[in-house]
Simulated assay, not measured.
Amino acid sequence: MTTYICDDPVDRRAGLDAATAAAARGELVVMPTDTVYGIGADAFNSAAVRALLAAKGRGPDMPVPVLVGSWNTIDGLVVSVPPVARKLIEAFWPGGLSLVVEHAPSLSWDLGDAKGTVMLRMPLHPVALDLLRAVGPMAVSSANRSGQPPALTSSDATAQLGDQVSVYLDGGTAPIGIASTVLDVTGPVPRVLRQGAVALDALREVAGEVIGAGQPDGA
């Protein structure tokens, strides 16, 4: 277990190299994002994803989201990008919006019981983006034990996850401090599954009709 302080350019480069190598070995890393800190693994390494779930103390019934390092990555991960999803990506990526879409059936990953879908986000944090561009799509969940408060600093994550993580990238305090908004775009009308960093009104300005969290269809 090693922590790298990413405010220092030399330590940041060393940390990114170490995290990239750790992910390639199937190990876990903690990274800063704009919302909260995340614990991540190579999305295509099923054993690493299982280790991630074990570190958090939860099962496959809560599938692990995937973070990407560019807009274009999504085209290789889904069957097709709905037009409304494209508009939302252009408006809110990188940023605090996660989109639930149908993933391409040919992908060899096991993120949990996702029923053919995947939650995707491009975070607005330079350290996270550098790591994602080096590793590729990563399975990333909040860096905390299940049921515990999300980690807003590297120290918060270390206190909960300890040596189950090989590399910690310390990017200071998470600037937003709350989880992303999760929007399901697999149905005829986008539906908010979790209200978070992006407000419902902002989503409606871009997408038109959006069903808020807890609202019935058509409301």
Score class of each variant (00 low, 15 high):
Gly136Met: 11
Ala24Gln: 14
Asn72Ala: 15
Gly76Tyr: 04
Gly26Ile: 12
Arg145Trp: 01
Gly136Thr: 07
Ala43Gly: 08
Arg133Met: 11
Gly214Cys: 13
Thr3Val: 15
Ala202Gly: 01
Gly95Leu: 09
Arg25Cys: 10
Glu90Arg: 10
Asp130Asn: 03
Pro82Met: 04
Pro216Thr: 07
Ala134Ile: 03
Asp110Trp: 00
Met1Trp: 00
Leu131Lys: 02
Gly212Thr: 06
Asp110Val: 06
Pro175Ile: 12
Ser155Leu: 13
Met138Tyr: 00
Phe92Thr: 10
Thr3Ala: 14
Ser108Ala: 14
Val127Pro: 00
Val127Ser: 02
Asp156Arg: 08
Leu99Ala: 02
Ala18Asp: 04
Pro60His: 08
Ala174Gln: 06
Tyr37Thr: 08
Ile5His: 10
Val210Asn: 01
Val68Asn: 07
Ala157Tyr: 05
Leu203Lys: 09
Gly38Phe: 04
Pro32Tyr: 04
Pro137Asp: 10
Thr117Val: 02
Asp113Ala: 15
Asp201Lys: 13
Leu77Ile: 06
Asp7Pro: 01
Ala219Arg: 08
Ser108Tyr: 00
Arg191His: 08
Pro126Asp: 15
Val84Tyr: 02
Ala128Gln: 04
Gly15Cys: 13
Tyr37Gly: 12
Phe92Trp: 08
Ser142Asp: 06
Arg191Met: 11
Gln215Gly: 00
Ser142Gly: 05
Ser80Arg: 13
Cys6Phe: 05
Leu132Phe: 00
Gly95Lys: 06
Leu203Asp: 08
Pro65Arg: 11
Gln195Asp: 14
Pro149Leu: 14
Ala157Phe: 05
Val78Lys: 09
Ile176Thr: 07
Thr73Asp: 15
Arg194Val: 13
Ala55Cys: 06
Gln160His: 05
Gly38Val: 10
Asp8Thr: 03
Ala174Glu: 08
Val29Phe: 10
Leu183Gln: 07
Arg50Val: 06
Ala48Tyr: 01
Leu52Ser: 08
Gly76Pro: 07
Ser80Trp: 01
Thr186Asp: 11
Gln160Ile: 06
Asp42Met: 07
Met31Ile: 15
Gly76Lys: 08
Arg191Cys: 12
Ala41Arg: 06
Ile5Phe: 05
Ala197Ile: 09
Tyr4Leu: 12
Pro105Glu: 12
Val84Ala: 12
Gln195Lys: 08
Ser141Pro: 02
Pro137Leu: 11
Ala202Leu: 12
Arg12His: 01
Gly59Asp: 15
Thr3Trp: 03
Lys87Val: 03
Ser155Gly: 04
Arg204Glu: 10
Gly69Asn: 09
Ala213Ile: 07
Thr3Lys: 06
Asp217Leu: 13
Asp61Trp: 01
Thr2Asp: 05
Ala43Ser: 12
Ala179Cys: 12
Ser154Phe: 03
Thr33Arg: 11
Leu203Phe: 03
Lys87Leu: 15
Gly116Tyr: 01
Thr20Ile: 07
Thr2Val: 15
Gly177His: 03
Pro149Asn: 10
Leu131Ala: 02
